[in-house]
Design a protein around this nucleic acid. Structure first.
Lengths: 299, 299
DNA sequence: TCCATCCTCTGACCTTAGTCAGAGGATGGA
DNA sequence: TCCATCCTCTGACTAAGGTCAGAGGATGGA
């Protein structure tokens, strides 16, 4: 990360917060405070529980309540107790609220249009392409990795999704019972660890590391949610597990994988893993890989 | 401008205002309101007049005054009358103010770093490249074109810069008196027009159009400031002048140019101009171009 | 020298965007 | 049935970020 890069990022931040930011508020907040406009937007076509809105926008309950009273006063929303749990209240847009939301929507379109409008076709294409790239990489940078216990709900969600996907993709199907699965204890300190990747708090991937004493460390159960693919998350998991294994004094990292997982195989190769003879009798494995990790620089 | 593009721009706006915006405030406003932090930043190392600051940040004079009193109270700035005009007041950073500004600077670096930090080297390169592209094109989209009178200060600034540049670049030098220069009246309605391009209010280019009755329209005095090159501004000028000429019922647009202006010659060719025989005896011209503009679609 | 204009400042006022403490109804498990 | 807990709401309060009108000194041209 050199100074030129930092500098470019700063120029970008300045340009974007000034231009997009100012326009954003200008277009969205034309006749109501942007707090209300955002709330109106998040309520959506089908309504939402108040507590979901609070969570989503990260606002104080008293404040949301006041914003809702204001929208209610303008006849844009109705608030009613949820039938199933009458402590919770559900907000729904009225006809007028729907129209108002459509207006906000149209203004967002106008804002986007005002950025593209002065440009010619070639420039527009380039701008949109570059924006998509920035988006993708900012999203990638927003993903955080945390070690969790294998029985944590987020871990369970990832592992179940992982098994489900293996079932679909393996030619032979997949039955966890037949596989050499590390049990919950094996992916916990001190026998190993399990990382979960989260994007905006939602789990979007996992990767386990087995650290058997006196034997090479082993990557297990690496999975990336479909919506988080293309962000370089697999590579980041591998880099992190390499660093963790090195920290535990391992000098070899290995793994087994199924021939159906072509993207994963490509990833391992490009991360410097080399194919070796079978080192276990995992019935679902077709390929075994190994990488020497001593002296691997971190990052 | 199709719906997919609009959609991508909206996704970009959302991602960037949320992520960069939130981080921005978080880093900048850690111990003082961001209004003050911005002001501190804009004062800069060498001080600024109060009225320049007001202009630059687009703030009310009373508000700026109050912010300055607050910074003054914290011992970060001193405000003194400007010697040349004692109505104007000049703000300067104190030693403490300089230190505080350096802190803001460091935090901006941190913010930029926090966006890059989770990425690997390849991703960082790509992100920085894409940000530069977005920056460039957003800047291009921020440039506005306006018709002005040739004696307007902004027009004069551009024309003088243009002549100065010709003097340097032409092998034979350049003396306005020897050239077939359209006089001020010729680039004004109804005999023609002069466009000035502005970026954040600063003039960054000009382009004139002569509309002689019964003769082809002619492009004159097209110039783009060095800091605004690479934004497609020349092409935009040409497109706008084509549209204007067409609106005045012209079906042919022509121009002459000097062999030293290779970028301009390339631009004219790629805009569909074709080289023709000399149609005037401009002493500084080596190439004459012409373009049929009837039925040219706008934009 | 006078007067209109310019620049800055102050006081009064406002909205937005919150925070915090506690009231009060609804729920669910003991 | 009771009680702790959950969810929402209200009232009281705060800071930030302004706007507006007018005061008052400085300036410059007639």
């Amino acid at each position: 990360m050199d100074a030129t890069q930092i500098d470019q990022v700063r120029r970008f931040n300045r340009a974007v917060t000034e231009r997009v930011g100012v326009l954003h508020d200008h277009y969205l907040g034309r006749d109501r405070p942007i707090g209300e406009a955002r709330l109106l937007w998040e309520i959506g076509e089908h309504g939402q529980d108040v507590r979901w809105l609070r969570e989503r926008l990260g606002l104080d309950s008293g404040y949301v309540s006041r914003l809702l009273r204001s929208l209610e006063g303008d006849g844009l929303v109705t608030v009613q107790p949820q039938p199933r749990d009458r402590r919770v209240r559900t907000v729904r847009l009225t006809e007028a609220g729907r129209a108002e939301r459509a207006l906000v929507d149209r203004r967002s379109d106008e804002l986007a249009g005002s950025l593209l409008e002065p440009l010619n076709a070639v420039q527009r294409d380039r701008l949109v392409t570059a924006m998509a790239e920035v988006n993708r990489l900012l999203t990638a940078a927003t993903v955080v990795l945390h070690p969790v216990a294998p029985d944590h709900p987020d871990a369970q969600y990832c592992l179940q999704s992982y098994f489900g996907e293996l079932r679909e993709r393996f030619a032979s199907g997949f039955d966890p019972v037949r596989s050499l699965l590390p049990d919950a204890g094996e992916l916990q300190s001190p026998h190993g660890l399990l990382l979960v990747a989260r994007l905006h708090g939602e789990p979007v991937g996992c990767a386990g590391l087995k650290l058997p004493p006196g034997a090479p460390a082993e990557i297990k159960r690496m999975w990336v949610a479909p919506q988080a693919r293309g962000l370089g998350l697999g590579r980041r998991f591998v880099a992190e597990l390499v660093a963790q294994a090195a920290r535990h004094g391992c000098d070899v990292l290995r793994l087994d994988t199924n021939e159906a997982l072509t993207a994963a195989i490509g990833l391992y190769r490009s991360c410097g893993f080399e194919e070796v003879a079978a080192f276990n009798d995992e019935p679902y494995a077709h390929h075994w890989f190994e990488k020497r990790i001593t002296g691997v620089p971190p990052g």
